[in-house]
Nucleic acid binder design. Sequence first.
DNA 1: GCCAACGTTGGC
DNA 2: GCCAACGTTGGC
Length: 169
Amino acid sequence: MPYSILLSMKKRHKTAYWLLKTEPESYSIDDLKNQKVGRWDGVRNFQARNFLRSMTVGDTILIYHSSTKETGIYGIGEVKSAPYPDPTQFDRKSPYFDAKSKVLNPLWTARDIKFIKKLKKPLLLKEIKEKPQLESMVLVKPGSRLSVQPVTPQEYRAIVWLLKAKKAL
DNA sequence: GCCAACGTTGGC
DNA sequence: GCCAACGTTGGC
């Protein structure tokens, strides 16, 4: 096989899937819908940050509402930008300010996320917990609190199937 | 609002 | 490097 084709195959990658948690009181799927493209910032956990960094532009995002009455997946987005330093880490007035982070060596990362759609009905956490196909999700792993987490293609397919079944798409 | 589970910090 | 204390997350 010609080297140029090998190169192009290497560059082409499959879309990956991720789940991003947010507290709707501070930033909700409706906020993202209004903004069309929103900055995903305030991630202050190293593992979550590393997942945020390892995303590829174009990856699919499930938007999850946490710490609310009806926790669950509320919408879909897409990774819009490359990773860049989270500006809130340098903002003394921000709750996400981090004195340990230096401008020349930023600790924390943000990305822009494009709104794709808001679900007609959310896929609630309790529904996710009921489905054997979704028991592998990081979301339902005991003690897991990761705010940025990978979703496998199988899990994503199962979620889409469930959303179609309940006419939420 | 409670609290279990987890991550981070800092004394030693 | 251990681990107690503390802070945070997030479901309930």
